[in-house]
Design a binder for these strands. Structure first.
Lengths: 343, 343
DNA sequence: GCGCGGAATGTAAACGGTTACATCGCCGTG
DNA sequence: CACGGCGATGTAACCGTTTACATTCCGCGC
């Protein structure tokens, strides 16, 4: 086993308190004493035991991250952003992915007790009230991309509505009128908000319902591929498709290309997320950009704030702006459009 | 704060030992007592404190995962696989990403002391000996995709060599002779092994050096794009390109398409990794498949074994087979080829 | 010469569990 | 009836830190 603080203290001829102070930069220590202790610690290979420290200080230096079932490049980027931001503040992150049902979330939350100082929950599938019931009231929490409606937690959400709306308007401005939408996973909040953005934009532009233009999907490339085939079979055929995310759009491109239907000449395509490969697709994908790395950093920052101020602070609900990035797949020349920001 | 075991014990009229036993399913407990305790615990919202438990049992129920700087869909899938496998065995995972330099790794390792029961290190950039120096000798460790040469740890690696070799041979079988290679990040072990596989296959096929056919890269789409432009300027122009990974291949496709060079008619392209979108590209990407999810599961399994058996067990070095998946980008009809497995 | 204040360090009580060992009934057996 | 044994539970030490509260030492002002 590795050395304990007591062994170091004995070996250095001081008390444990002094050793502890040296390792925490607390209280005045004679320089000579400090050096001696550090030397002994090095020789013995001593490193403070995190569990003991947590028990004593009631701080773990760890932030829990709950991820949904869904995955892909988007989440990978988010995790990375979170980890980077957390480490910059001296925290580790404990990841727990693939949470879909409620009882599972509850189990994980229990298991996390005493393991984390705060929680970042990313669960677009669950609604806020279900969470409130499960979450220990005392733990600071930031909801990332969850349905929030009047929730008692801090939250950060994407402007899904604005992004979707901007995309539809852009396609309409290019002359498209039969603009189809491939929906995201059922029950997913992002998917829902994007759908609503699409519907309302369509409604206000053309004063017509969009039911027959909405195709089911689940955010996967496969579902995009299936939707693509479905769209090609429609009559009259849509001239543009707005996909709920980039993975779906990739599936669409694949289906169209395979059928010999040219993008954007025969049909325009737009996605959502702007994952790194989007600009390298053929044709480069028009999509809605989300500042993913910022998302993570912002979430950590909010959480740290919440951890400092306890329950006193007012809950903040922030909506992160999204930006339409116009590339080749929609048939317009390159450029950037800024969707209106929903408050 | 939340309730402690003592409060539960007092409220239920039993000793802490009994409560502990109920929560750990240890020792005989009268059914009636158990129910009473559970009821009280529920009422008080009691959940055992993980830090205290770790301190006492010297187990944390957590596995540390060290990731490199590099990211992308590949790593995201690995994390997911790891988390899934870990949770199935009742463990959490503590992720720490973006470790490039040595001192940073050392710092993280110290910080992890007492926080994890074992470690999965994924650091294709660092060599095994550097790790050995830093790693606490007592902690069970599995090296994932690291340079291993005679290392004292368990390890799991991909058959990069075999995959690269198979790809080159496949391209050669299609009649290609000037097969270029876009290299991965310098200093990266996977990149090196793939390069060697490429070189040796080329050498044994054509008995010629490949220096002028090797182009620098770093695993990113951008580097593929740059390499693509470089390749188009070469004279004589290569008729096929083997990219060090799929992201690079995507960059290549983009560069070629932009220049009006058709794939695979004018030039063939192959990648490595078989990330989920590979089959949805235009054209679908011929690439080397790695069982990513299995990788994670296997790593966890090995680590659990190492954790059980302490130092007694013999170190295992495993090489995971890779499979060439032939799709449209290389100009062959679909099908599967199995590269020889290097022992 | 003495008291005082601050710097440097020590003492010991938490922190919240686990668990070896002790205790206490109670039942069956010789 | 004494006793061994077992099932159910209690007692208290221990895990490795942190930290409030001493304690010691020393120089300085009066």
């Amino acid at each position: 086993m590795s050395a304990t603080i007591r062994e170091v203290a004995r070996e250095a001829g001081v008390s444990v308190a002094t050793v502890s102070r040296v390792f925490n930069d607390k209280g005045p220590i004679r320089e000579e004493t400090r050096q001696r202790i550090l030397a002994v610690a090095l020789r013995l290979g001593y490193a403070p035991n995190a569990a003991a420290r947590s028990l004593s200080t009631r701080k773990t230096g760890t932030i829990g991250v709950l991820l949904p079932d869904l995955y892909g490049e988007f989440f990978s980027e988010v995790i990375r952003g979170l980890d980077l931001a957390a480490r910059r503040s001296g925290f580790h992150i404990l990841v727990s992915s693939s949470h879909s049902d409620r009882s599972e979330v509850e189990a994980v939350l229990r298991a996390l007790r005493g393991r984390v100082d705060g929680l970042i929950v990313m669960s677009p599938e669950a609604d806020a009230r279900a969470l409130e019931a499960n979450l220990p009231g005392t733990l600071p929490i930031v909801l990332l991309n969850c349905p929030v409606e009047g929730s008692a937690f801090d939250s950060i959400n994407l402007d899904n509505y604005g992004g979707a709306s901007a995309t539809v308007r852009h396609l309409a401005a290019l002359g498209h009128r039969r603009i189809a939408h491939v929906k995201g996973a059922p029950g997913n909040n992002d998917a829902l908000e994007r759908l609503v953005g699409y519907r309302e934009a369509m409604q206000s532009l053309f004063e017509e319902g969009t039911e027959e233009l909405e195709i089911g999907g689940d955010f996967s490339e496969d579902s995009g591929d299936r939707a693509g085939r479905e769209i090609l079979a429609m009559n009259p055929r849509p001239t543009a498709v707005f996909a709920a995310n980039d993975a779906t759009a990739i599936g669409l491109l694949h289906a169209f290309q395979k059928a010999g239907v040219r993008v954007p000449d025969d049909i325009a395509v737009a996605g959502f997320d702007d994952i790194p490969i989007a600009r390298f697709l053929t044709p480069p994908l028009t999509t809605v950009q989300v500042a993913i790395a910022d998302l993570g950093a912002l979430a950590i920052q909010r959480l740290l704030l919440a951890m400092e101020h306890g329950d006193s602070r007012e809950r903040q609900h922030e909506i992160l702006p999204t930006t339409l990035v116009v590339r080749g797949s929609c048939g317009a020349t390159a450029g950037r459009f800024h969707p209106r920001r929903r408050v």
